[in-house]
C-alpha cells in the first residue's frame, strides 16, 4: 500500500521537499523531478535529510532533469537511483497512489 511521492521544487526555494519527507511512510518512494533534482545533490545543505530518508524509503531522480541541469550519477547522494520517463511510469504503476508535492 505504498505511495510514490514526487518532488518538483528545489528545497532552496520551496517547502515541497521538506513537506514530502515529513509525510513518508517506510516503504514509500520519493522521485525528484524538474527543479526537484537539486535536492538530491550530494554535499548540499539538504543531502543529510535525504540520506536519512533513504534508510526507510527508496529515492529516485529523473535522469533527464538531472542531465539538463548539468549533473549526473556521481553528483547525487549515495543510494539514489536514476530513472528515465519510462522508469517514472513504472514507479507510478508499482505504487498504490502518487502524491505530487507541488
Amino acid at each position: 500500500m505504498s505511495t510514490l511521492h514526487t518532488v518538483n521544487k528545489s528545497p532552496f526555494e520551496r517547502s515541497a521537499f521538506s513537506s514530502a519527507l515529513n509525510h513518508l511512510k517506510p516503504g514509500d518512494a520519493v522521485l525528484m523531478i524538474e527543479d526537484g533534482v537539486v535536492g538530491a545533490r550530494k554535499g548540499s545543505a539538504f543531502a543529510g535529510l535525504l540520506e536519512s530518508a533513504a534508510k526507510s524509503c527508496a529515492i529516485y531522480v529523473l535522469e533527464p532533469d538531472l542531465a539538463a541541469r548539468g549533473m549526473g550519477e556521481t553528483d547525487v547522494i549515495q543510494g539514489a537511483n536514476l530513472v528515465d520517463y519510462g522508469g517514472f511510469v513504472d514507479l507510478v504503476t508499482t505504487h498504490q497512489r502518487t502524491q505530487a508535492w507541488l
Binding site: 505511495t3 502524491q99 507541488l102
Partner: peptide, 18 residues
Amino acid sequence: SRMELTEVMAQQDVLLNF
C-alpha cells in the same frame, strides 16, 4: 498530528494536490 495525517493520506485511493 503530522503522523496522523500521513496515515490518513496513505489510506486514500486518489490524492489531488493543489
